[in-house]
Design a protein around this nucleic acid. Structure first.
Lengths: 327, 327
DNA sequence: ATGAAAGCGCTAACAA
DNA sequence: TTGTTAGCGCTTTCAT
């Protein structure tokens, strides 16, 4: 069995009180260096591991940050990795709770709540109704997309600006007939679609705007490619890189060259886009900065600091690669 | 704050003892239906959530299954989803601990151990040395690849048989010059490579066997494509579907048609392979069955049942799609 | 069917 | 610097 060795065991073996061992294990002041070393030795030898639960129970705090994410989305994985790093720096621990096709965000959140997380970070989902209205609920930070839900913090990329960047780039290359493949019900889809429309309008291209139904995955992109080929366009902005990859592949297989016959811009700059054989022009989100800020915000809320701006918006960055060209 | 409502609060409000509320909340016998209903009502109204930690602390058991997985691998995500489902059926809870580029399996496992998980399921990694030799360590189940580590259970697909299936299929189509793109340091790579070699030998093609260095991602596959094009082969088996996708794309962009100029077989049957525009012939692992068996095995160990076969091997299944053809 | 009391492993006051 | 004590929220005897 795991964790059979308790503080008391270590204390007995080292010939000191449990309180002293506790002090040593936590690394707080209040023990002599000699004792410290001896206790550490004994603990190591016995294979002592602090019982996270007992510790939290007593201290009244968990220092736990709950993270809800979709286990099938690689880009969300990158965010999770960033959250781990950021949390560690601030002395908090990450508790993961995945959504799956059979497990919705409500279930994911419930687990986190039972674990007494001090704040929740939501990636790729909106706060379920459990989290709103109730009084005894921890602070919530929505990461990487906007949220209309009242009382939650948001850390996100300026997706409108992102699409503005994409459209500007394409217009700069001489394109005017530019379509947009939509993200469907994905939380960030609406913002990106609006950004596309606004950018087109800003270039006097309001009437040329064309939004095609899409989604968040390669299959959605491949499906959208048919409509895209039928439409009279020379360029397209796509909801995200996964979807763009699908577009790319289907378009090429239909015999239309990219970028010569069609310029394609993705979104996210995920691993996929950077692959040399994909080499996708895309809008990059500053993942490291976003995760850092999300954790910082969560901690600010936990520690009761006053937050002036609940909606933190990070500027995106255009990464020009090989799927766009002058028309 | 979360979880401010305690058993005692509910008890006071309902006018009963905490012990009775505990009985009701756990759904065990020992309370009248009337009381049961009243207590439940009060608990709901107060928004009571049992404190997982306190509960575990006292009961001595956690009913927690720790899962280590790589957050960037979609296929592992499918396994995680299956584990959630299987664990729920048996009344266990899943605790996720991700490995990331900055967080190795040792760190991931340490967290799980501190959480007092009663068993560990490892996907995509081998047990770190912390887990071996020590006495006070929970049972470990390695999922989806073989392990040489003593004392751990393994639930995996018969990868040798999987490659046998792939090679048989290609030979049946008339191919004899068949290469294999390797999985590099991935835990399952060695087995698949050996399976490939054995299958080639079985067809009298030992001398035609050609193993090319690859890896687990699209980029690795794209890189391997160069060597593949230079080699005099008409077909290739690839370590996994992600890598195969990279191969596919790079090969086609080099002007070689698939399957006409090169037949390609992947491995995993992940979402990627099923996409209509990828349509990859591949070896499918029975994900649902594997996760089910992994959880079952973990629970058997926890409950001290005698296990006769520590290495559970599931047969793979060939899924013929559009990337293979007669030569 | 219900309640009182002990204690899980730990931390936090406080005392020595 | 070190030890003593109380108690976190819950489950588990054991009474009633």
């Amino acid at each position: 069995m795991s964790g059979r060795v308790t503080l008391a065991d270590v204390a007995a073996e080292a010939g000191v009180s449990v309180a002293l061992v506790s002090i040593v294990m936590r690394g707080v002041p209040g023990a002599s260096d000699a004792t410290r070393e001896r206790v550490r030795d004994v603990a190591d030898r016995l294979g002592y591991r602090p019982d996270a639960r007992a510790r939290l129970l007593r201290s009244g705090r968990s220092r736990l940050l709950g993270v809800v994410f979709g286990v099938e989305y690689a880009y969300q994985g990158e965010l999770v990795a960033g959250l781990y790093a950021a949390a560690e720096k601030l002395g908090y621990e990450i508790v993961l709770s995945a959504t799956t096709p059979a497990r919705d965000e409500r279930a994911a959140v419930a687990d986190l709540l039972n674990d007494r997380c001090e704040a929740l970070v939501l990636i790729g989902s909106q706060p379920p109704s459990d989290l709103t209205g109730r009084e005894d609920v921890p602070p919530v930070v929505v990461l990487a997309h906007a949220s209309e839900v009242a009382g939650v913090d948001v850390v996100r990329t300026d997706d409108r600006a992102g699409l503005r960047l994409a459209v500007d780039h394409l217009v700069g290359l001489g394109h005017t007939r530019i379509a947009h493949v939509d993200g469907g019900r994905s939380p960030a889809a609406a913002d990106r679609r609006r950004g596309y429309r606004a950018a087109m309008a800003a270039h006097g291209l309001r009437d040329a705007a064309l939004v095609l139904p899409g989604g968040a995955t390669e299959a959605d992109g491949a499906a959208a490619a048919q409509a895209l080929l039928a439409a009279d366009v020379t360029a397209v902005t796509v909801f995200n890189d996964r979807c763009a990859t699908g577009v790319l592949d289907a378009v090429r297989r239909a015999g239309r060259a990219v970028p010569e016959g069609l310029s394609v811009v993705g979104y996210d700059d995920d691993r996929l886009a950077r692959l040399s054989h994909v080499d996708l022009t895309t809008v990059a989100q500053d993942t490291a900065r976003m995760t850092e800020l999300a954790v910082r915000r969560a901690v600010e809320r936990i520690e009761g600091e006053t937050v002036t701006e609940p909606d933190v918006v990070i500027p995106p960055r255009l990464v020009v690669r090989g799927t766009t060209t002058r028309r």
